[in-house]
Write a protein that binds this DNA or RNA. Structure first.
Lengths: 358, 358
DNA sequence: CTGAAAGCGCTTACAG
DNA sequence: CTGAAAGCGCTTACAG
């Protein structure tokens, strides 16, 4: 067998630069030969298999370290019938959310042999399920993490199960088995926002909620109502308007709300984007935040702490959530810090809320 | 050979759910058998190899379509000695930038068999080069795209060349062979900003530049100076201060600038983040934008069109840049729309600039 | 224009 | 505790 150390120059495939001479990559066979064992035994130590004699294991580990060997992911994947790819599949439009979650997952993947593959998608595309399905079948993923709102899609979850692909869904409600979920207790943060406004003395309060199709928008509304009711307050039907989680819809909704004869003294927006729209609407009709109108957001995006006045909002530790999700995939249910699979967003009080003027 | 259509139940590897029955995946062998040819011939049509008889090709293509067959990426990767992974390696901290570029690359990868793997990194980490090097050696990437400032690191580029990995560097200056570069003509946008301010009548103008270590910060400064000089204006040394491309540094620099006896009437910030810091500094000392001080940013992040007053800034089509980079990798130099490998950012005039008050 | 053989670098299933 | 054989699903190198 011609497993010589030197490859002839014409082994170049044409994909590379002519004359580029790859240093011959060391393989499991080389390690095995040097250790005087079979490659199967080397494979065992690579995969932390149960039973290898300590001395053999040590010798092999030393060799692996000395030659800086690490097994080829492609070959492993082929033999394992499973790639070393973790996919993040998402439709969330917020860059900050996406980037933070990617970081969190990556934090958890560091040191594992997995890489993070990203897959943004559009749930409204006609071929949405076909695309995702093809992707899942093809890649034989090591795992997938699904933030909202894809996480809320039971069909996707089923495709994943069908393909035998582990996954973690991130959502504000329990919509799958616990070991496949990270629960974000958004109702809690929303309730805090309600209490904060109630304590400041607000009585006429409005809410711009997110779309019907997002579970989070229900949870935020529910939590907010719960918090208010502790103070004997409640949201009247026409003090709840539907926004689309965007700047523009936040603006439009606020215009409606602020034009009412009995104008609210505080508005809780379903997310920061919409809260910024409220700022704009207030400005336009000469209202000052927070003197004339208090505003609370949700998410704590970077804009919240850069705009004037700084926005009071509910902070979700997205990166931590991503980390937990990644750990759950890489280490299994016991991996995620003692089985912690829920996260509680907290209110951050800044400048956009004050006692009502009247 | 027991390549039966039915796999026994105990073929389950333990990685999956017990009893989970994977539908037997169709392989190149199945297609070959059904087409009555060798698998090598099927391989040829998969890879668009030159010479396959038209009728044979058609028959195979029909079969592929009928059975919705697509070759296993892991197996292909192993045989090709090259994975189907395109990596985006970056240290840019701006979420909007990152997300847009990811989208652009993904746009270009759609339809290819490549997936996008992301690799954020910290150039200041002690093991920075080791990490990247290991990553590159291990993954046998199909290609890599490097936005600033990793793109400016010649050592990384060399590691990539060494590993025979195609790459595209995105930068404001020509720092590699043309087919390995997307050039962003940032000096052009900065010059436009200068002309805009000069035409408004500003004479006392300051610039908060980015860090020495970013090529872009030099280019933006240079372009700005060029634009000013067309009007016989120039930046005095102490009207140029060093920021760090962050909100905080923008604020600090603006405080210095605005405290000067001869206060500037306009400030060109090296990016939007710093421009927001200028807003804050101005607000603090009772200055109104743009009545008392005009502000221009660079990047056109989403905040620019959400904050009051809307920020005049230079828009870079990041997603387009990512698309070009992706195309360059997937289709080679001729792939990127007729060899277009440069992008020109343009000024977007909004509300933060006006004629000086004096 | 097409195929048989060998191989990519690992792991599984089975023995011992 | 360890190994020889077969195989994962493709492609390369070589023939014809």
């Amino acid at each position: 067998m011609a497993s010589s150390d030197e490859k002839p120059d014409d082994s170049d495939t044409g994909l590379g630069r002519p004359g580029a001479r790859r240093k011959p990559k060391i393989t499991i066979n080389d390690i095995a030969r040097m250790a005087g064992v079979s490659k199967k035994t080397v494979s065992r130590v690579i995969n932390d298999a149960a039973t290898v004699k300590a001395s053999t294991r040590d010798k092999i580990k030393a060799l692996i370290k000395e030659y800086d060997f690490s097994p080829d992911p492609q070959a492993r994947a082929l033999a394992f019938r499973r790639s070393f790819l973790v996919a993040m599949i998402y439709d969330n439009p917020s860059p900050q959310y996406i980037v933070n979650m990617q970081r969190g997952i990556l934090d958890a993947l560091a040191g594992s042999s997995c890489q993070l593959v990203i897959r943004p998608c559009d749930r409204n595309a006609p071929d949405f399920y076909d695309m995702i399905s093809e992707f899942i079948e093809q890649q034989r993923l090591f795992g997938a993490v699904l933030p909202p709102s894809v996480s809320e899609d039971d069909h996707i979850a089923e495709m994943l199960r069908e393909a035998d692909c582990p996954y973690v869904r991130i959502a504000s409600v329990e919509l799958d088995e616990p070991h496949r979920m990270i629960r974000t207790r958004e109702a809690h943060g929303a309730a805090e926002a309600a209490r904060h406004l109630a304590r400041l003395g607000h009585r006429r309060i409005a809410h711009i909620r997110g779309p019907e199709s997002f579970r989070s928008s229900h949870e935020r509304l529910r939590g907010f109502q719960d918090g208010l009711s502790e103070f004997g307050l409640h949201l009247k039907d026409d003090d709840i308007v539907f926004g689309g989680y965007t700047y523009e819809t936040g603006y439009e909704c606020a215009r409606l709300l602020l034009a009412k004869p009995e104008r609210p003294t505080a508005i809780f927006a379903g997310n920061d984007e919409m809260a910024l729209g409220v700022y704009k609407a207030a400005r336009e009709i000469g209202l000052t935040v927070p003197a004339d109108i208090s505003v609370v957001g949700f998410d704590d995006t970077p804009i919240a702490s850069r705009i004037a006045p700084y926005l009071t909002t509910v902070h979700s530790p997205i990166r931590d959530i991503g980390y937990l999700a990644g750990k759950l995939l890489v280490e299994g249910p016991k991996g995620a810090k003692g089985g912690l699979t829920s996260i509680t967003p907290e209110l951050v009080v800044r400048e956009s809320t004050a006692a009502p003027a009247f």
